[in-house]
């Protein structure tokens, strides 16, 4: 469904990720684990073509992905970046509407669906996104990505700087969306509990490469591995 092979890239001349290969099957939620600075965010930017590829391939729904970021978005690659990056001087409604309209969807309907799905955005609907709290912005960034109707969603540290009550809500929403709309997800995280609560399978990164692939049960049991790789 979503496949990355031999991904190598970084910023300028500095190579940060080396020969990373992974895949996400249809309807699956996969975690990408690792400490700070192992290259999770860089890998996500590689996948979205925000940074140029030195080597490697990305496939979306069985086809080679386009070379541009907007091209990949249009074939169904959704992205919720670390730090959210909502459009600050646009209203909550506009943030959602622009994603829907760009992808040929009815903006009014998409906004209504999103406000239905994320009730905490409704009282803020006409407020500027830049004035929302961190948790609200995170939910908005997710709503924006979903409005573009993706088939695979990349989430980069969705729990960072978000209050615990909203973290639970985000976990619940991701599971529900995964089930109802069949959207596959790759979630980069440091919060192990959050990942264990939603993902079936995980890749663990270390120094720019995939150290190992594991499933939920073995990771849950293996305290030594948790300690070593994640420092938890």
């Amino acid at each position: 469904m979503f496949k990355v092979s031999d991904a190598t890239g970084g910023y300028g001349k500095t190579v940060i990720i080396h020969d990373v290969s992974l895949n996400v099957w249809e309807g699956e939620i996969v975690a990408l684990l690792g400490r700070n600075g192992v290259g999770k965010s860089t890998l996500m930017k590689y996948m979205t073509a925000i940074i140029p590829a030195k080597k490697g391939k990305v496939e979306i729904a069985g086809r080679p992905a386009p070379n541009t970021t907007f091209g990949r978005a249009r074939v169904g690659l959704g992205y919720v970046p670390q730090g959210r990056f909502v459009f600050p001087r646009m209203s909550v409604i506009e943030n959602i509407a622009v994603a829907a309209a760009t992808n040929g969807k009815n903006a009014t309907m998409a906004v209504e669906e999103a406000l239905e799905e994320f009730p905490l955005l409704r009282p803020k609907a006409t407020a500027l996104a830049g004035g929302l709290s961190g948790g609200q912005q995170q939910v908005l960034a997710l709503a924006r990505a979903l409005a573009a109707d993706p088939c695979i969603l990349l989430l980069d540290e969705p729990t960072e700087g978000v209050q615990p009550s909203i973290i639970d809500e985000i976990a619940g929403t991701l599971l529900r969306i995964n089930k109802e709309r069949g959207i596959s997800m790759l979630v980069a995280e440091q919060d192990l509990d959050f990942c264990l609560s939603i993902a079936e399978r995980a890749y663990v990164m270390e120094r720019g490469t995939i150290r190992l692939e594991t499933d939920r049960e073995s990771l849950r049991k293996d305290k030594a591995l948790q300690q070593e790789l994640l420092g938890v």
Binding site: F70, Y79, F85, F87, R144
Partner: peptide, 24 residues
């Protein structure tokens, strides 16, 4: 207009605008 929303999105956060499909 849709163009107007795209234009402001592309100016405010160009990379993120691309990531939702806008040719910034």
């Amino acid at each position: 207009t849709v163009y107007g929303m795209k234009a402001r999105a592309a100016i405010q956060v160009p990379d993120m605008a691309r990531a939702i499909g806008i040719d910034s």
